[in-house]
Structure formats: C-alpha cells, structure tokens
Design a protein around this nucleic acid. Sequence first.
DNA 1: CTGAAAGCGCTAACAC
DNA 2: GTGTTAGCGCTTTCAG
Lengths: 331, 331
Amino acid sequence: MSTIYEVAATAGVSPATVSRVFNGANVSEDKARRVREAASALNFTPSRTAQSLRRQNSEVIALVIPDIENPFFTSVARGVEDVAQAAGYSVVLCNTDDDHAKEAKYLSIAVSDNMAGVILAAIGASSDVGALIARGRPIVAVDRSPHGFAADAVTVDNFAGGRAATQALLDQGYSRLACITGPADVETAQQRSAGWRRAIADHASLTSSVSVDGDSDCYLRYSDYRVDGGRTAMRELLTLAVPPDAVFVANNLMGVGALQVLVESGLTPPAVGVALFGDLPFATLVPSGITIVHPPARELGTIAATLLLQRINGDKQPSRSIVLGNEISTV
Amino acid sequence: MSTIYEVAATAGVSPATVSRVFNGANVSEDKARRVREAASALNFTPSRTAQSLRRQNSEVIALVIPDIENPFFTSVARGVEDVAQAAGYSVVLCNTDDDHAKEAKYLSIAVSDNMAGVILAAIGASSDVGALIARGRPIVAVDRSPHGFAADAVTVDNFAGGRAATQALLDQGYSRLACITGPADVETAQQRSAGWRRAIADHASLTSSVSVDGDSDCYLRYSDYRVDGGRTAMRELLTLAVPPDAVFVANNLMGVGALQVLVESGLTPPAVGVALFGDLPFATLVPSGITIVHPPARELGTIAATLLLQRINGDKQPSRSIVLGNEISTV
DNA sequence: CTGAAAGCGCTAACAC
DNA sequence: GTGTTAGCGCTTTCAG
C-alpha cells in the first residue's frame, strides 16, 4: 500500500496536506487537485488501522447477540448492518450462545480493538461493560434492556404482544389457554407470559365469571426459547389430565417445536388454538388459523444502529429507551 | 486503557520485556511474573489497533456474502464465526445484496483495514480482488468458485445434488419434470439445472424410450433465487398447456415460493412431485412427500474459515478446491 | 536475557 | 493555507 508520504512526495506537498485533503480541511484548489491525482495514480487508500491508532477509535461496531441462526437476530443483524454500512462503519458479528465467557471475551475485544461502540443483546442480568463505559464507548441494548448500567435501549413491547396474542385466542372462543415461555430469568419471557396472564385475568373479570377454567398457571411452562424446548413443553401440556385447548408460544423457535408436536398429534386449528410471538421468515406453510405477533426485528436493528451512531458522534443526552409495537395477524 | 509503558514502569522492566511476555518470547521467570502482576493490577490489555499497525495485519476476517437473511448464508456465517472465534479472530459481516459496488467497497475496506483475509461468496464473474492479492491477503471462495484469480474454494456438489433430486422424482414415477433454477449467469444455478438435465437424459436412454415427454428444456425456468421469483416461475409452469407433473427447485427461497403457489393451487405431493435444493431451517411444516437436498452450509463455513486461517498462517501450497456432498432426504 | 530506539501510517497542534 | 513535528501503542532489530 502506498502511504501518505509517497502521495505527498509525488504531489510535491507535505503529508499533512494530503491528510487534510482526505479529511475535508481547507487546502488550496491547486494542491488539492495535485494530491488527488497523485493519490489515484498511486492507488492510495488511507490506512484505517493507522487512523484508528491515531484517533483512538475505529469505524467498527460490535453486534453481540446470542445466535445469528435465530431468524429474529438474523433480521436484527441485517438492520444493523444496513445503517452501519451506509455510515461507513463495519460490523463485527459476535455470537455468544448465551455463554457469559464468550460475551465477556467479545466485549473485551471491542475495547482492545478501539471499536466505536457495541450493540448488545445481553445474556443475563450482568454484563462486563465496565471497560467499555470507562473508555466512553457507547452501548445500546437491543431486545433486552440493560441491567446495571445506563444505556440506550430498543426493545419490543413484549407485554402488549403477549396480551394481544392471548386476547385473540380468547376471542376465538378458547378457554383453557396455556403459555410456553422462555427461561424464567429472561426479561422478554417474563413480559410475554405476563401479557398472557393479564389477558386471561381481564377476560375473567370482564365476564364476571370464571369462564377461564382453573388456576391458569398450571398451564404455564418455562422453557428455553429453542425448538426442542417447545416440543417438550407442548408434549407435557398435551398429557395433562385436562389439557389446554389453546396455546400461546412466546418465541419463534419454540413455536416451531410446539407446532411440530401439535401437527404430529393431529391437532391443528381450530381443534386447538395457537398464537405465536415471533416470525418464522420462510415458513410460509404454516397451518392456517394461527395468530402471529410479528416483532419488528429489522427495525430493532436499524434503530439500535442509528442510536449508536448518534452516541458515537457525540450525542450526550440522557439515555433513551424505545419500545416498538408489534404487528399482529391471523393466517 | 493502560499501555505497555505503564506496565513496564510498575513492573520495573522495559516495554520490550512486557511485549515479550505477552508474545511468548523468552523472559526470566521472575520478570515475567512481575509483568503479569503489573498487567493485571493495571487491567492491561494490549491494543489490537497498535498491534495491527505494527504487524501490518489484524486478527479480523471479512465475510462477504449476498445476504445474511438467506438461511443458507446465515449457516455459513455461523460456521465461519465459530472457527474464527476459536482462533481469536473476529469476523466482519458484509452483505453485498448482489451489488458490485457494495462488494467492491467491502473489499477495499478489507485492505485498508489490514484485515487478515476474506471469505467471499462472489457476486459475478469478476471481483475487485486485485488490491487484496497485491498485498498477499488470502481469499477463500465459498459457495461459488473464484473467477479470474486463484484462491482456495469450498463449494457444494451442485451437479450431483440436482441430479439426485431429479432422480428421486423419476423414481417416484413422475415424467414431466420441470426445473426452476437461478440466474443463468450464476454458476450454482447452471450446475444444479445441469444435474436435472442429466438425470432426465440418463433416464431417457436407460429406458430406451422417450418416457420423459417432449423437449425437457421447455420446462426449465431461470429465475432469481428469491421467494417471488419462485412463485412467478411456478405459476408460469402451471399455466402451460401441458403442465409438468413434478418440479425441481434449485434453491431454498424459490422453493418456498413454489411451494406456496402449489399449496394455493391445491397441488401437494403426490399430485405433483417436488424436490428442493436447499434447507428451510425452521420450516418444519412442509407438506410431506418432498425430496430435499441439504447443502452442508455450516460445514462450508467452518471449512472455508479453516482454509483461510491456514493461509493466514503462511500455508503456501497450491490452491485447493473442496467440493462437499449433500445429504438428501424425502420427508 | 534484556533494554534502547526506530518506526508502522496517520493526525493535530503549532508555527510560519 | 501549509509544513514541521510529535506522538497514538506496539514490536522488533540491534547491542550488550
């Protein structure tokens, strides 16, 4: 690679002037032209590495998520990459697999690599963001709100989504509504199941009767947000003495698992009511009669990236928390 | 961040010694220990940026693919990230959207960022890899073989997959086999449709009769590897005077589209034969009776990353081309 | 085995 | 407006 010095030499100016040309500072028209000519003749591109060292920050952001193979995070990643790329930033992909050690490692790389900022779907209650914060690197939380530190956050309205999904089931006339949600210590799982519980409670009081049978929590299952977890939970529910007649599944992958079990058991709507929280991007061949809450995954990504870029560019306002609504549809 | 100088000062050694400790060079046990203590006391992590500048290469690789939202590339990315992460490398995600300008931009960032190498699913015949090659940065082609330059490549056996899928249809007794493949100028599309054509030709000669009706190419459609393209092509085929009685769809997304149209038309196996090249990771609820060729996407990623790392570490052997076989199943 | 010193390529004062 | 210069934090000869 040619350097700024070679360009300076062939253009007959100082290295500083070359730098100025490439950074939009004031340079006389004449010299600017000569620099540009020399640069293109030498096929010069500034070294981002040297720039990073000198400026103490690189045009790279980290995207830390549990698993890129989960279609929800795939879409988030796409959104992030789109706005990053438009702004000249690169995004490095970090799969944590819900492993705290991996998360910590990536976070530490982000600092030792002088990354401009990080978008984080944190695993649990605490993340090692101290080093990042100490260096003033902005963080924005996606999908899950930050714990133990202040940061911008963009999440989806899990409670409202869970409630609406459940309400749809109620409207369809089902009365024994089960819920398969994620790990009890994951905020999105709690919120979605809380929405389910609320819809049921409201319905009960509205009809001023116990039209929803029994203690609803006996129909609540905590699982792991994975396909197999959805299968297991669904199977369990079906073997109950009085099985539910409808189920709200709180994420896309468990939805796949639950649906598999249901179909295998010959139970498709309207024999059983089904509502899902989450998109199955290319699974267009779903049994009909299912209610789906579509979280705006890509927007989550674009908004998170936009907020992050604002912070990178010096925005100092108090941290913001943005909650996005969900589309809901019944197929 | 504390620097090597501060560590040196508090350990009472020279910066060079600190560097040596962190790079596994020979240092007396005593000083090494003091350095480590000082480092952890100061919470020191070497600056990867400075290392990159000095060493002229960074522990970052670029993954350049058309679209992370295509589940095939999602899996490739996962595979790449896995082995990269295990080796201490970061991967930056580059979506090209089949846009040459974006591809070129990412490739140029890879060089100006001193990235260690790139894994490339090239868009078309030519890619701007000159600068990379001039700097000795290794490239490995994934999914599509390199054109106009030498590089390691790891691809799937498209021809064999297309042939096997088609053969399965033939074995099931279908005789008017259509094929929906990708753009005519995309190598994987050609190879898959060539496999289809070969299976038909072989079958015709084997039965020493024209048991496969007419000029088979009238059942060949070039499309765009997207859902809508699959829909359109499928619809066209169905409106033919003598429509096909089976179809081989050459990629996952078009498969979704074709299946949608088929289901909408009330045509599911065995009324019509269907074979797909490509996985639909979470679309587990596909009509039964479909033959699926599963390209080993994740392995493509892990192998590509492994080859790349070997090159990064100085492997100079002639370029290798690895072709992976496909699993095939009928559901 | 260890230290001194010279950069990697760029930017940002600071002078002129 | 433009050149000079001093580093950013690290690695790596080169001496000793």
